[in-house]
Write a protein that binds this DNA or RNA. Structure first.
Lengths: 189, 189
DNA sequence: CTCAAGATTTACCGATCAGTACAGTTACTG
DNA sequence: CAGTAACTGTACTGATCGGTAAATCTTGAG
């Protein structure tokens, strides 16, 4: 049971779950794609649910890492970062293989709020909210909590729009709206 | 084959799919819940996919009917309706048994953009966009298309937030943000 | 080399999946 | 009443679901 083997399994599972969905992906398929036997798979993860949770955790770390780094690269001041977070979003939308937010999909497939998977998905969103709230506070806005929640509404809405194809440039729409909200929030200060 | 029997089946399927998910709901369960034999079920709908499409169509008609009626009841002018659409949204969130947008969930479970179910889900969102664009145009805003797209970002984001529990009152946050966007759009005119 | 301990594979479990063959039942026609 | 056409219920199909028992292979110690 090499420790890196387990990571490979999670990696592959993440990819397949993201592309295929959770219920629609059977353990047999995962076993086939990872070139590992079923028993070995179940040695690493006692249930499918455990594997899903591991995949979501990896996704959370990776996405938040990429996203915050990208935002930091695109702008230096918290004020500007609140805007370029929508540019980073647009880059994500245009990536090959983009098909929505894994956590939204997870909570859609495991709907019950008490379900572990649903809660882990919600936790990811909460961490993102904390991140944006921190930016808003650092930028000196009054009521950074409300501002962050509203910016996240735009972000989540843009993801949905990107998946459902309502708009040619959902991230751009969101960024324009965000600029208005930011200006208005600043005026109140 | 009474015509109303088919409607009952769609009705029940809609409820179970909404509560349980699509892949997670087997035809056996639906047959059990509708008190109809499997053969009869497959007489009305040749495949599960056909049943899902019928359920989505009913949901589309019903939700848009309810939503536009509720908005019309809460305000008379298009200008005010663009705001109270978020009050109606909040009422929906607080309904018993609310568990997100059926079309978002459908497109999450049937991800491929070419899939019939995905497209039918996208069509619903497009009809809603047309509705809001119409309101924005009637209210006399310049660039009603962009304004409508941005308001819908807030609406979709609020739905996600309501499902994932980021916020105590996502509809209220969205309404406040919408008010700012509306004022800014008016100022440009 | 021998031999035990751990990891891996094969083959399988009962349950459930979407979908169907066929016999039985009903209801309308003459 | 007989005949028939439409409908319904039972019982089943092969495939796949998540998960496992027992056999096989690998490995390191003595």
């Amino acid at each position: 049971m090499r420790p890196n083997k387990k990571d490979e399994l999670v990696e592959k599972a993440l990819e397949v779950f993201y592309r295929n969905g959770f219920h629609a992906t059977g353990m047999d398929l995962l076993v086939r794609e990872t070139c590992v036997s079923k028993t070995s798979m179940y040695k690493h993860f006692r249930t499918k649910e455990e594997l899903i949770l591991a995949a979501l955790q990896l996704r959370d770390l990776r996405f938040r890492g990429w996203y915050t780094a990208r935002v930091a690269a695109l702008a230096t001041t918290p004020q500007d970062q609140l805007l370029v977070m929508f540019d980073a979003l647009g880059e994500w939308f245009r990536e090959d293989g983009f098909c929505g937010c894994m956590f939204v999909k997870a909570s859609a497939e495991f709907q019950h709020p008490d379900h572990v998977i649903h809660q882990q998905a919600a936790a990811h969103k909460h961490l993102l909210l904390d991140y944006v709230t921190g930016l808003a506070r650092a930028a000196g806005y009054p009521d950074p909590e409300t501002l962050a929640r509203q910016l996240l509404l735009l972000k989540e809405g843009a993801i949905t729009a990107a998946v459902m194809g309502d708009s040619a440039d959902p991230a751009g729409d969101a960024k324009a709206a965000a600029a208005i909200l930011l200006a208005a929030a600043r005026a109140v200060a």
